[in-house]
Structures are given as C-alpha cells and as structure tokens.
Simulated scan of single mutants.
Amino acid sequence: MASNKSKTNIMFSHVYCVGLRIWNNLMKREFLNRGKKDGVLTLKQLNRVQLRFYSDVCTSGKKLNQEISGLKSKMMRSFASVVSTEVKQSAKIINEDLKNVRKTLNDVADAKEREANAMLLRLGEGLDDKDRVTKMIAKLTDDTVNGKNILKVFRLGKRGKGVVRPILIKFDDVKSKEYFFTNLYKLRSLNDDFAHVKLIHDLTVDQRKKLKRILDDAKARETNCKEGFLYRVRGEVGRWKIVKFPVKKESN
C-alpha cells in the first residue's frame, strides 16, 4: 500500500499464499464497496478489513488443521490395519513352519526307531512264533545273529479266523538286521514253514508312500520299455532308486 498528497492508493498484487490471498480479496471488496466515491479507505475501514482478515485466516487455519488431523487419523488407522494384517499373516506362516518342523522331527524319530526292525510276512500262525523265528534267523546267519541280538518278536493286529498276521522283529541294532537281510537268499533251503515267507523293512507311513510311488514308476517304465529291460527298485531304506537290467536271454 502506498500514499501520495491527496489520497491513499491501494495496490493489489497476485499472490499464492492463502493468508495473503484472503487479505487481497478483502481489500479489493472493501475498496469497491466502501471507497467508491474517492477510492480512499479510512483508517477505521482499514482496521475493520484487518480484523476480518485475521478472522478468515483463523477460520481457514482451523479447517486446515481439522483436515490434517482427519488425514492423520485415517493414516494411523490404515497403518494399524496394515500392521495387524501383516502380523496375522506372519503368525500364520510361523505356525505352519512350526507344524512342518514338528512333523519332520516326528518322522525322523519314527524312522530312527524303526530302522533296526524287520517285518516277517506269510508265516502261519502258531504259539511258538518267537522260537521259530529265532531259530530261522540263527540258521540263516550261521548263528552270527541269534537270540541275544533279537529283542522282541510279536504279531501285529488282532487274531482272526483265516488271518495270517505279520510278525515284527526287533533287533538290537541295524547291523544285526542288515546281516540277516544279506542271507535271505538261503530261505529256500529251510523247511516248508518258511518256503513262502517274505521279509520287508518296518517303514513309516511316509516311507511306504514314497516306496509305492517308486515301485509304480518302475513298473510303468518296464511296461513302456520297447527294448525289454527290467526295472527294479534298489537301495537303502529311504534312498531307493530304479535300476535297469537287461533281460537274460535263454540259451538254446
């Protein structure tokens, strides 16, 4: 605002500040409404304009503060919601991981407990199972594995008419069991009681499923093989693999 000898001239500039823009608009309006006669604003009018300016600025500032507070509140709620969702998802993932770890540990412990066991199938029911099995093992291994190495021999399942239950054999260690398995080819030399028996490993549920998948795969390969190869499953428990053998040609 500038002044000369006879009157006060009001100069308005284009500004971008909210407060100054309010002041600018008020001054324009007051000048047009109050000072049309000579284009002069009295000190009283100028003070009134100034008071209205401060009032409008305060009102605008209050609205701005309310909008900022509302925005902050929304942001805090959104942030809290995001954090809550992330925490729930993380907790769910951790619980699933713990379940998987627990299952893995249980499977390992179960497999470890079974590794020195063997299952005897198709041996007719009798009252002297332990004695018959112990003598059979001692004979096959030339008494290298005998009653001292056999901890338990018992049938699995309930007795039933016409049912031949499998027999679980618990050895004192894996070496005794493995030595017994290396001599299974001698079974045919024993009496008729053991002529049709079958020895298998005592597998966990997961191990049985895995072995079945591998056996099915070997069977499918052999069926689809045009060269006539044989496919057999070999390897230690849990480390099975499919081995291909050429078919033996019959000599003329």
Rank of each mutant, 00 (worst) to 15 (best):
Thr204Ile: 08
Asp142Gly: 11
Lys209Gly: 09
Glu96His: 07
Gly124Met: 09
Lys92Gln: 10
Asp206His: 09
Ile200Tyr: 00
Ser189Arg: 13
Arg213Tyr: 06
Leu127Tyr: 11
Thr182Pro: 03
Arg165Pro: 06
Ile137Phe: 02
Pro166Val: 01
Leu105Arg: 14
Arg102Cys: 10
Lys198Ser: 10
Ile214Lys: 00
His201Tyr: 08
Asp97Val: 14
Asp193Val: 11
Val163Asn: 07
Lys88Cys: 01
Asp192Tyr: 15
Lys177Asn: 05
Lys170Thr: 09
Asp193Cys: 14
Val101Tyr: 08
Glu125Gly: 07
Ile94Lys: 07
Asn100Phe: 12
Gly160His: 13
Asp129Ile: 15
Val87Cys: 02
Ser84Met: 10
Lys135Ala: 10
Met119Ala: 00
Leu203Met: 10
Asp172Glu: 14
Asp129Met: 15
Leu127Gln: 09
Leu184Glu: 02
Lys186Ser: 03
Asn117Asp: 05
Arg102Asn: 13
Lys186Phe: 11
Ile169Asn: 01
Phe171Ile: 01
Leu105Asp: 07
Lys175Asp: 14
Leu184Cys: 04
Ile93Cys: 07
Gly160Leu: 13
Ser81Met: 07
Ala138Cys: 05
Ile94Trp: 07
Val164Trp: 04
Leu98Gly: 01
Arg122Pro: 02
Asp97Phe: 07
Ile150Tyr: 04
Ile93Val: 09
Ala118Arg: 06
Ser176Gln: 02
Lys170Asn: 05
Tyr185His: 12
Arg122Lys: 13
Leu190Pro: 04
Arg132Pro: 01
His196Arg: 13
Lys112Met: 12
Met136Tyr: 07
Arg188Leu: 08
Thr144Asp: 00
Ala111Cys: 04
Asn117Ser: 01
Thr104His: 10
Lys212Ile: 07
Leu151Ser: 10
